[in-house]
């Protein structure tokens, strides 16, 4: 009986395929073309219904709202206070939906820069942490030097976070780009935003990365990465990797359970947070529309 329930639970909340999650609720900019007309027609009537419905993909869009599952570090009040602070910060900055593999631009205050601000464009290679500690790493090649910047998501010195190209890669971490030739992580600094149609699923970029020859920063043949092309190693490397592999771990239900926040708790957390997040979203959209509307009047 226990096994049955656990099994059910894992499929429901553990590692459901990310792709299927439809983008019911997106932060992407193109929305201001279609959305205004929809809302202006039936805005107030639909609103209360929407509030009660928390999109099922919230845990992918706002993963940092889920606390660290390590039981020794958990405290419900701290988590609540943390979420309140996060929402307060989100009222001042638009933190869009993004994934590892998306190409982003971050403008942040910098005391030592000439204009007191810097803008960094790069591919997101890692997203870590929960709560106010949530952070992500951007990588780009600047003047033939691989450069990485790690940003705290809720750092008040961050002025703007833009997603230039919203997409996913085959892996959850792209740290192997450090061992790949520079062209894999070179992105134009003046890149323009590529819009996706409203409601479209996040595209997955199936690009395979061909690494430089060894030595590497990690033994990539042991990491079971999907986005790596043939590594061109001798057989003994693969044999050793097979020896050390732990393919049974994905069947260890208790391990998966301890690694994740149970679905019921996730629902509770997002039910608490979602209405405010949604309000912030709606406010932002309204402001955007206002800006669009004001500009032509000035010209006239």
């Amino acid at each position: 009986m226990l096994l049955k329930t656990l099994n059910f639970h894992r499929f429901k909340c553990g590692f459901a395929p990310v792709l299927r999650a439809s983008r019911l609720f997106s932060n992407s900019p193109p929305s201001d073309v279609q959305q205004p007309s929809d809302e202006s027609i039936s805005g107030k009537q639909v609103k209360p219904e929407r509030k009660s419905v928390v999109p099922s993909n919230s845990r992918f869009i706002y993963p940092e709202f889920l606390p660290d599952p390590k039981i020794e570090w958990r405290n419900s009040l701290r988590e609540k206070l943390e979420r309140m602070d996060m929402i307060q910060r989100r009222k001042h900055i638009d933190i869009p939906e993004f994934y590892v593999g998306s190409i982003m631009a971050v403008s942040s205050s910098n005391q030592h820069a000439p204009n007191k601000a810097t803008r960094f464009v790069g591919i997101c290679i890692q997203r870590l942490g929960c709560g106010l500690r949530a952070n992500f790493t951007l990588r780009n090649v600047i003047k033939h030097v691989g450069t990485e910047m790690k940003y705290q998501l809720y750092d008040p010195t961050i002025q703007k976070i833009e997603v230039l190209r919203l997409e996913k890669r085959l892996d959850d971490e792209l740290l192997y780009l450090r061992d790949a030739p520079n062209e894999y992580s070179t992105f134009d600094e003046n890149m323009e935003v590529e819009y996706l149609p409203e409601g479209a699923p996040v595209p997955v970029n199936p690009e395979m990365v061909k690494l430089k020859p060894r030595p590497w920063r990690a033994r990539w043949e042991r990491k079971n990465m999907k986005g790596l092309a043939d590594l061109g190693l001798e057989d003994r490397f693969y044999e050793r990797a097979e020896e050390l592999a732990t393919p049974w771990e994905k069947y260890d239900l208790m391990k998966q359970y301890r690694k994740t926040i149970p679905e019921e708790e996730q629902k509770e957390i997002f039910a608490e947070v979602y209405s405010e997040l949604h309000e912030v979203e709606v406010m932002r959209k309204k402001l955007k529309r206002k800006k669009v509307f004001i500009k032509p009047t000035k010209n006239v």
Partner: peptide, 10 residues
């Protein structure tokens, strides 16, 4: 956290 983003003066 209710404050505006931190910016530095030139």
């Amino acid at each position: 956290f209710t404050d505006q983003t931190i910016t530095y003066e030139e």
